[in-house]
Amino acid sequence: MKGKVVSYLAAKKYGFIQGDDGESYFLHFSELLDKKDEGKLVKGSMVHFDPTPTPKGLAAKAISLPLE
């Protein structure tokens, strides 16, 4: 699924993505496929991810940034 980063707290390594389906997904650095892309996780960045339901809500897994 595609989505847009709505927040990312680099110090805490987490944030949120708004998916194309309108839902909010929890984003964690550990799910970023290329850790070098962390600096690109800023508000408004477009990402691809696997939407995954968890006991705490919806989460983004296997997060990647589109090729530039």
Results as ranks from 00 to 15, higher is better:
residue 2 K to N: 10
residue 38 E to P: 03
residue 44 G to I: 02
residue 42 V to Y: 11
residue 64 S to A: 09
residue 32 L to D: 00
residue 26 F to N: 02
residue 13 K to M: 06
residue 43 K to E: 08
residue 30 S to A: 09
residue 67 L to P: 13
residue 11 A to Y: 11
residue 21 D to H: 04
residue 31 E to M: 07
residue 60 A to H: 01
residue 10 A to F: 13
residue 17 I to P: 01
residue 62 A to Q: 11
residue 58 L to H: 07
residue 14 Y to P: 00
residue 48 H to G: 06
residue 33 L to R: 10
residue 37 D to E: 07
residue 43 K to W: 10
residue 7 S to T: 12
residue 4 K to A: 07
residue 2 K to M: 11
residue 43 K to V: 11
residue 8 Y to A: 03
residue 46 M to K: 11
residue 65 L to D: 02
residue 26 F to K: 03
residue 10 A to S: 12
residue 45 S to K: 14
residue 38 E to S: 07
residue 24 S to V: 15
residue 51 P to L: 05
residue 29 F to Y: 15
residue 65 L to H: 04
residue 57 G to F: 04
residue 51 P to Q: 04
residue 23 E to T: 07
residue 53 P to T: 13
residue 18 Q to D: 09
residue 39 G to K: 14
residue 60 A to W: 00
residue 7 S to D: 07
residue 12 K to N: 09
residue 28 H to D: 06
residue 22 G to I: 02
residue 45 S to A: 15
residue 4 K to V: 14
residue 6 V to S: 10
residue 45 S to N: 10
residue 50 D to C: 14
residue 22 G to A: 04
residue 16 F to K: 05
residue 12 K to G: 06
residue 27 L to Y: 09
residue 20 D to M: 10
residue 19 G to K: 00
residue 46 M to G: 06
residue 42 V to C: 11
residue 47 V to F: 02
residue 37 D to Y: 07
residue 48 H to W: 15
residue 23 E to R: 15
residue 61 K to A: 08
residue 36 K to C: 12
residue 30 S to M: 10
residue 9 L to V: 14
residue 4 K to F: 14
residue 5 V to C: 03
residue 44 G to C: 08
residue 15 G to F: 03
residue 18 Q to N: 08
residue 51 P to E: 02
residue 30 S to F: 09
residue 36 K to Y: 08
residue 39 G to H: 14
residue 36 K to S: 13
residue 57 G to R: 04
residue 60 A to Q: 01
residue 65 L to M: 11
residue 63 I to T: 03
residue 18 Q to L: 15
residue 52 T to L: 13
residue 58 L to F: 09
residue 6 V to G: 05
residue 18 Q to K: 13
residue 22 G to D: 06
residue 53 P to I: 14
residue 4 K to S: 08
residue 32 L to W: 02
residue 24 S to G: 06
residue 26 F to R: 03
residue 28 H to W: 06
residue 37 D to Q: 11
residue 3 G to M: 01
residue 38 E to G: 06
residue 43 K to A: 12
residue 19 G to T: 04
residue 41 L to E: 01
residue 35 K to W: 09
residue 4 K to E: 08
residue 67 L to M: 13
residue 62 A to C: 12
residue 55 P to T: 10
residue 8 Y to T: 02
residue 15 G to M: 02
residue 47 V to N: 01
residue 40 K to R: 14
residue 55 P to F: 09
residue 61 K to N: 06
residue 49 F to P: 00
residue 26 F to P: 00
residue 61 K to Q: 07
residue 53 P to N: 13
residue 25 Y to F: 03
residue 43 K to F: 11
residue 12 K to L: 11
residue 15 G to A: 02
residue 62 A to W: 08
residue 58 L to N: 08
residue 63 I to N: 02
residue 27 L to N: 00
residue 43 K to C: 10
residue 4 K to Q: 10
residue 2 K to R: 13
residue 47 V to G: 01
residue 68 E to H: 12
residue 30 S to C: 12
residue 54 T to S: 08
residue 61 K to L: 09
residue 39 G to E: 12
residue 60 A to D: 00
residue 14 Y to H: 05
residue 39 G to W: 14
residue 15 G to K: 02
residue 21 D to A: 04
residue 37 D to H: 08
residue 19 G to A: 05
residue 1 M to L: 09
residue 63 I to H: 01
residue 56 K to Q: 10
residue 15 G to N: 00
residue 28 H to Q: 07
residue 64 S to G: 08
residue 32 L to Y: 02
residue 1 M to R: 06
residue 45 S to Q: 15
residue 26 F to Q: 03
residue 59 A to F: 10
residue 11 A to F: 10
residue 56 K to F: 12
residue 61 K to P: 01
residue 32 L to A: 01
residue 35 K to H: 09
residue 47 V to Q: 01
residue 7 S to I: 15
residue 38 E to I: 08
residue 63 I to C: 04
residue 39 G to L: 13
residue 22 G to V: 02
residue 68 E to D: 13
residue 5 V to L: 07
residue 58 L to P: 10
residue 37 D to P: 02
residue 28 H to A: 12
residue 26 F to S: 03
residue 61 K to G: 06
residue 2 K to E: 07
residue 18 Q to T: 10
residue 57 G to N: 03
residue 54 T to Y: 06
residue 52 T to M: 14
residue 27 L to W: 04
residue 53 P to W: 15
residue 29 F to Q: 07
residue 32 L to C: 03
residue 23 E to H: 14
residue 17 I to A: 04
residue 16 F to S: 04
residue 61 K to Y: 09
residue 1 M to C: 08
residue 49 F to Q: 01
residue 60 A to V: 02
residue 25 Y to P: 01
residue 29 F to H: 08
residue 52 T to D: 09
residue 16 F to L: 06
residue 17 I to F: 02
residue 17 I to R: 00
residue 55 P to E: 10
residue 40 K to C: 10
residue 20 D to H: 08
residue 28 H to F: 07
residue 29 F to I: 10
residue 26 F to A: 03
residue 18 Q to W: 11
residue 56 K to A: 09
residue 26 F to G: 01
residue 54 T to M: 07
residue 55 P to S: 11
residue 51 P to W: 09
residue 64 S to R: 14
residue 48 H to M: 15
residue 47 V to S: 01
residue 23 E to L: 15
residue 21 D to K: 03
residue 7 S to K: 14
residue 23 E to D: 06
residue 33 L to S: 06
residue 10 A to Q: 11
residue 47 V to I: 07
residue 19 G to Y: 02
residue 9 L to S: 15
residue 1 M to H: 06
residue 1 M to F: 06
residue 63 I to G: 01
residue 7 S to N: 11
residue 57 G to W: 04
residue 63 I to W: 00
residue 58 L to R: 09
residue 48 H to E: 12
residue 5 V to D: 01
residue 51 P to D: 02
residue 11 A to L: 10
residue 34 D to I: 07
residue 36 K to W: 08
residue 30 S to E: 09
residue 67 L to F: 12
residue 28 H to L: 07
residue 64 S to Y: 14
residue 2 K to P: 05
residue 2 K to C: 14
residue 57 G to A: 03
residue 7 S to G: 07
residue 66 P to T: 14
residue 47 V to P: 01
residue 28 H to R: 07
residue 45 S to L: 14
residue 26 F to T: 03
residue 34 D to L: 06
residue 61 K to E: 04
residue 7 S to M: 15
residue 3 G to T: 01
residue 55 P to Y: 09
residue 59 A to I: 15
residue 58 L to D: 03
residue 7 S to W: 15
residue 41 L to D: 01
residue 34 D to K: 06
residue 41 L to R: 00
residue 23 E to N: 15
residue 19 G to L: 02
residue 44 G to K: 03
residue 62 A to L: 09
residue 2 K to D: 09
residue 16 F to I: 07
residue 67 L to A: 13
residue 31 E to I: 03
residue 50 D to Q: 15
residue 17 I to Y: 00
residue 29 F to K: 06
residue 59 A to Q: 13
residue 38 E to N: 04
residue 67 L to E: 13
residue 7 S to Y: 15
residue 55 P to H: 09
residue 27 L to D: 00
residue 56 K to P: 03
residue 1 M to S: 06
residue 23 E to F: 14
residue 51 P to N: 04
residue 64 S to V: 11
residue 21 D to N: 08
residue 20 D to T: 09
residue 47 V to A: 05
residue 40 K to V: 05
residue 5 V to F: 02
residue 12 K to D: 06
residue 53 P to Y: 13
residue 39 G to A: 14
residue 48 H to F: 15
residue 46 M to I: 15
residue 4 K to G: 04
residue 8 Y to E: 01
residue 22 G to K: 05
residue 18 Q to S: 09
residue 25 Y to K: 00
residue 38 E to H: 08
residue 52 T to Y: 15
residue 34 D to Q: 07
residue 54 T to Q: 06
residue 37 D to A: 09
residue 43 K to G: 06
residue 33 L to I: 12
residue 54 T to I: 04
residue 50 D to A: 13
residue 16 F to T: 06
residue 62 A to G: 11
residue 15 G to C: 03
residue 68 E to F: 12
residue 44 G to F: 04
residue 61 K to S: 09
residue 52 T to H: 14
residue 10 A to M: 11
residue 56 K to V: 07
residue 53 P to M: 15
residue 41 L to A: 02
residue 66 P to Y: 15
residue 33 L to F: 05
residue 51 P to A: 10
residue 38 E to Y: 05
residue 56 K to Y: 11
residue 4 K to H: 13
residue 55 P to K: 11
residue 39 G to I: 14
residue 27 L to E: 00
residue 26 F to V: 04
residue 32 L to M: 05
